[in-house]
Amino acid sequence: MTDTPLHLAKRELQRLLTSPKVWIGVLAVGLIAGLSGPFGTIDHLSPLPRLIYWILLSASAFFIGSGVGTFAHCALRPRLPDLVATLVAGLCVGIVLTAILAAINREIFGISPLDPEHLLGTFANVGVISLIVTLAFVAFDRLDETPDDTPQTPRPADALLRRLPPEKRGPLLSLSATDHYVEVTTPNGSDLVLMRLSDAIELATGVDGLQVHRSHWVARAAVAGPRRENGRLMLRLTDGRDIPVSRTYVSAVKDAGLIPE
């Protein structure tokens, strides 16, 4: 697949657009803002136009901001420390959303998008919000990866499985790298998580499994048996998929008892 920031941004945007939970959240924010009428909109717009204004603004800000943020972060991450790349990405989101909001306000309120005072005021609000939201997402990711220190026994790969939709969580079957994503598969389905395979494998600590290819990890309980396809060694999983075994990992797979000596 094409491993470019634009490709990854499109993929992330597609994932968000098809998520009912994301749409519920976006509509909820739009409705709350439409009813409360912040930033003077309650004085300038009647209830129905105000609701439409804030719902459209919330949706465009979230989805466009997510696409811009993912693109900027993926483009900058190889060149900058992760936190710096995240902050710069948040700043880029703020600039783009300021331009969009200025264009919308021009059509609705007749405010010139070239008015320096209006632009600076808008960017001060939108830019700060974008940075805070970006940092919050990073903090949530860090918390998801932090082991639970409570006396309860943590479930294997719990920090990784929390990143999946609830209906797809279950015993871990395999991890497969694709671009900057990892396809996490359980008996209830699979989903893409934006992270490195090595980080996903680390979060899978506690699950009896091993890496069998530079792009694949499997749980031992998920392996039904070995097979060969055009001379290539494959592992047939319990869900019917075949995972390739590269030469580098053949010895480890044999030591694990997954293929005969």
Rank of each mutant, 00 (worst) to 15 (best):
A9M: 04
R11L: 08
R11V: 04
L13E: 10
R15G: 14
L16A: 15
S19D: 11
S19Q: 15
K21A: 15
A28P: 03
G34A: 12
G37D: 10
P38A: 13
F39N: 09
F39Y: 09
T41R: 12
T41W: 09
T41A: 07
L48S: 07
I52R: 11
I52D: 05
I52M: 10
Y53D: 10
Y53E: 04
L56M: 12
S58V: 06
F62N: 11
F62A: 15
F63L: 15
G65E: 05
S66N: 10
G67A: 10
G69R: 11
A72C: 13
L76I: 10
P81H: 08
P81S: 06
T86G: 06
V88W: 04
A89M: 09
A89G: 15
G90M: 09
C92K: 13
V93Q: 13
V93E: 12
G94C: 06
I95D: 03
A99I: 12
A99C: 14
I100C: 14
A102T: 02
A103L: 14
N105Q: 15
R106W: 12
S112W: 13
D115N: 15
P116L: 11
E117A: 10
T122V: 08
V128Q: 06
S130N: 00
L131S: 09
R142K: 05
E145H: 07
T150R: 04
T153F: 05
P154M: 09
R155P: 00
R155H: 11
D158C: 02
D158M: 03
L164R: 03
K168N: 08
R169F: 06
R169Y: 06
R169W: 03
G170H: 09
S174Y: 03
S174D: 02
A177T: 12
A177I: 02
D179C: 06
D179W: 12
H180W: 04
T185G: 09
P187M: 11
P187C: 07
N188H: 13
N188P: 05
N188G: 09
G189K: 14
D191T: 08
M195Y: 06
R196Q: 03
I201R: 10
D208P: 06
L210E: 01
Q211T: 05
Q211D: 08
Q211S: 08
R214K: 11
W217G: 08
A222C: 14
A222I: 09
V223I: 11
G225P: 02
P226L: 06
R228C: 03
R228G: 01
E229C: 08
R232C: 00
R236F: 01
L237C: 07
I243V: 11
S246A: 08
T248C: 03
D255S: 05
E261I: 01
